[in-house]
């Protein structure tokens, strides 16, 4: 599931000299996305991509920041599908975040790198604020905040943002509906039993 492709955004890529000014230690591919996310906002921003918090555990396949973002978005993506009761809902979200991480681990390296870039950018304050429209931390985002962000991605004419929507959509819905616990609500009896 390639969330992004550098080729498709080459037309919006800033000149190399410009992106090289950004003093963060990122791969070439990430430079492209830095440019993409708005060089004007980000130029010179050493703090662009935040350090990962120390000592916080995250599900396999996700950084702590990425887990926060997925955890913020899952309630909006799965609105209407998650259990109503708070403990059940919380457990379901936690399971889904973990399953998204597991799914990412099964993707090819290039796709994993694209997703890592997406999450790193979404974790950065300028992108979170100006692209995602999330004022505070992802973990404080409401379902309405998350939904607003998702709808903007979905409606975007910008292929990269639209692709990000598709990636989040596909990862989350695959994680949720692959789980037998989601099946009773949709009337799916599951596959025929076998030993």
């Amino acid at each position: 599931m390639r969330a992004f492709d550098t080729q498709s955004v080459s037309e919006v890529q800033p000149p190399v000299s410009e992106v090289q000014l950004i003093p963060v230690n990122l791969s070439r591919r990430r430079f492209v996305f830095v440019g993409l996310a708005g060089a004007a906002v980000l130029a010179g921003a050493r703090w662009l991509v935040p350090d990962e918090p120390i000592g916080e555990s995250a599900p396999a396949g996700l950084t702590a920041h990425a887990a926060d973002i997925v955890r913020a978005l899952v309630p909006a993506l799965l609105d209407g599908a998650l259990p109503e009761d708070a403990p059940g809902r919380d457990a379901a979200i936690t399971r889904t975040v973990a399953a998204v991480g597991t799914a990412i681990e099964g993707l090819p390296p290039a796709t994993r790198e694209e997703l890592a870039t997406l999450f790193a950018l979404l974790a950065s304050m300028p992108v979170r604020l100006f692209v995602a429209g999330i004022g505070g931390a992802w973990r404080d985002a409401t379902v309405a905040d998350a939904n607003g962000f998702l709808v903007r991605l979905q409606k975007s004419r910008w292929s990269v943002k639209r692709s990000a929507y598709d990636a989040l959509h596909q990862l989350t819905f695959a994680a949720w509906y692959a789980d037998p616990r989601a099946w009773p609500a949709i009337g799916y009896p599951g596959p025929p039993a076998r030993a």
């Binding site: 909006a76 993506l77 799965l78 609105d79 209407g80 599908a81 939904n147 998702l150 979905q154 959509h169 989350t172 819905f173 509906y177 609500a185 949709i186 009337g187 799916y188």
Partner: peptide
């Protein structure tokens, strides 16, 4: 996504 998607999924059968 969200409630629109969930409503269709509930009609899966």
């Amino acid at each position: 996504h969200g409630s629109t998607h969930a409503a269709w999924m509930r009609r899966l059968p």
